[in-house]
Amino acid sequence: MIRELIIYPGVDKSGFRERFTYIKLKAGETVSIVGPTGSGKTALITDIELLAQEDTYTKRRITINGQVPSDEIRYNPAMKPIVMITQNTKCFADLTTEEFLRIHARARKISDHGVIKDTIDLANTFTGEKIKKDTRVTVLSGGQTRSLLIADAILIGAAPIILLDEIENAGIFKQEVVRLIHNAGKMVIFVTHDPVIALLTKTRIIMENGAVKNILYQNEPEIRAARNLLELDRKIGNVREELRAGKAITFDFLSVNFA
């Protein structure tokens, strides 16, 4: 059982110590990491993913339930309590989707054969163009790849901690993914530039020059701002899907969506 994860400070890009004592994240908590590009957001979740022990260039240290994770937990995928969805929109493995998932299920020691089909089905709820089980992963589009990797993380990775790196960039149905993950009771950490995602999380870590600069907690006006943005985001989504489907925007559409 994962109760908490603690991040101990490392150094920023200039080699100066980060100015926090520790950051404690609890099971079920949602966190976003924000800041300009190059500010160290991905490095921070990579530290969490690798369960860094001062052996990454940021020199941070991570504990789980107050303990230094064992080698087995750090290096054996079957024991790893963390899944990470990176920004990659490409797979290099020359395997079909089914083979890829099957080997990954083996790595994570999952014996349920139904999981392969379930994963592909779930991925297909996030993406427009459907993925088939015998499609090679090398030819999947960027959005299909990320959809597959997200579904894989949820069902095959099936870990209590989920790290998502800029999920909004994939052209996938973001709200679906966010809702699904929110309902799973997991610790979820988003690296994001998306205001909706950032405002929906309880804790916000602000990055600058490779270091944690500040930590903020969701307040009342932010909850309201998030609600308004969600509505706006849904409208943008509706327009996007119309355009993607090759349709033109009509007065009817306008009056329904922007009345």
Binding site: L50, P77, T86, F100, H104, T145, G157
Partner: peptide
Amino acid sequence: DLVSQAEREVMIQKIKEVHTKIILME
């Protein structure tokens, strides 16, 4: 840093299937 976590784990699994006792590090 160039591949997804899932793909890294698929690669590790493949290596382990060739050499079960190898010490793996990423």
